[in-house]
Design a protein around this nucleic acid. Structure first.
Length: 264
DNA sequence: ATGGTCGACTCTCGA
């Protein structure tokens, strides 16, 4: 029976208006229940909602001019949408990086974690703090013993399998020990890496830098996009996989689709 | 070898 199946995907679109030619056909073909998007890079008044209306997807979003921006699309009703953190530090940028909702009674948190720029940059501290604030948000609003999905571009490769030439990237903001520990600390609240549950091999990447020639062919990528689930949901996961079609397309995104499927 | 390419928007920035 199909009725108890639940599928979710995450995709850093790197400008949603420039990626509709990939995004809309992909949704029609893959028909996931939920798609979490990051880096929409569009203000709310200019969000291409009609494209989702046409294929019968509901969509919620929060963006900023030129940078950041997050969105969740679903074939189902989207309930209890909220943006940003529920803390005193919350800023407009946070709201364009964090959106959450409930679909089919499953809470979904979609985040575009700050990249950090450089180890000695103030923004790297902002990044580390972001993971602490996420953990606080999970503790305040959710239970590790109930279904919950945390998806998005987390800008961290969790271990040495998740980046090419790991020895050369120990001082990179997406692989530095402090960044990996910050992610690990949030995971320790009660998340399972759904992709890793099914795929143990190294070199399975969700991001390939535009600036590296033939990065896909040469396996020069990063696994920085993630789908994490609390234990009661993770144990219902059936499969998870990376769909690289978006990186191979004409006018590709630098990120791929990441998909997870559950039997509820 | 320490670059490269995109996208949005100014003539540069962020990834």
């Amino acid at each position: 029976m199909k009725t108890n199946n639940f599928s979710i995907a995450t995709f850093n679109v790197n400008s949603i208006r420039s990626r509709l030619h990939i995004l809309i056909p992909w949704l029609e073909e893959n028909s996931v229940d939920v798609l979490c998007m990051q880096e929409t890079r569009v203000q709310d008044e200019n969000f291409p909602k009609e494209a989702f209306d046409k294929i019968k997807y509901n969509v919620v979003y929060k963006g900023q001019k030129s940078y950041n921006g997050v969105s969740i699309a679903s074939k189902h009703e989207i309930n209890d949408t909220a943006v940003g953190f529920d803390d005193l530090e919350n800023s407009p940028e946070d709201e364009a990086r964090l959106i959450r909702c409930i679909v089919r009674d499953i809470p979904i948190v979609n985040s575009y974690v700050p990249q950090g720029r450089a180890l000695d940059h103030m923004y790297f501290q902002v990044k580390l703090r972001w993971f602490e604030r996420l953990k606080d948000l999970f503790e305040r609003n959710y239970s590790a013993y109930e279904p919950l999905l945390w998806c998005g571009d987390l800008n961290v490769a969790p271990d040495s399998r998740d980046v090419y030439a790991p020895d050369n990237h120990e001082d990179h903001v997406c692989f530095h020990e402090d960044a990996r520990k910050a992610l690990e600390n949030v995971k320790s609240w009660g998340f399972i890496d759904v992709f890793r549950k099914f795929n143990m091999e190294p070199e399975q990447y969700t991001f390939y830098d535009y600036r590296i020639p033939n990065a896909v062919k040469r396996h020069l990528g990063w696994r920085i996009d993630h789908i994490l689930a609390t234990v009661p949901l993770a144990r219902r996961a059936e499969k998870a996989y990376i769909d690289i079609s978006s990186r191979l397309a004409q006018k590709p995104s630098d990120h791929t689709f990441l998909v997870a499927e559950f039997v509820l």
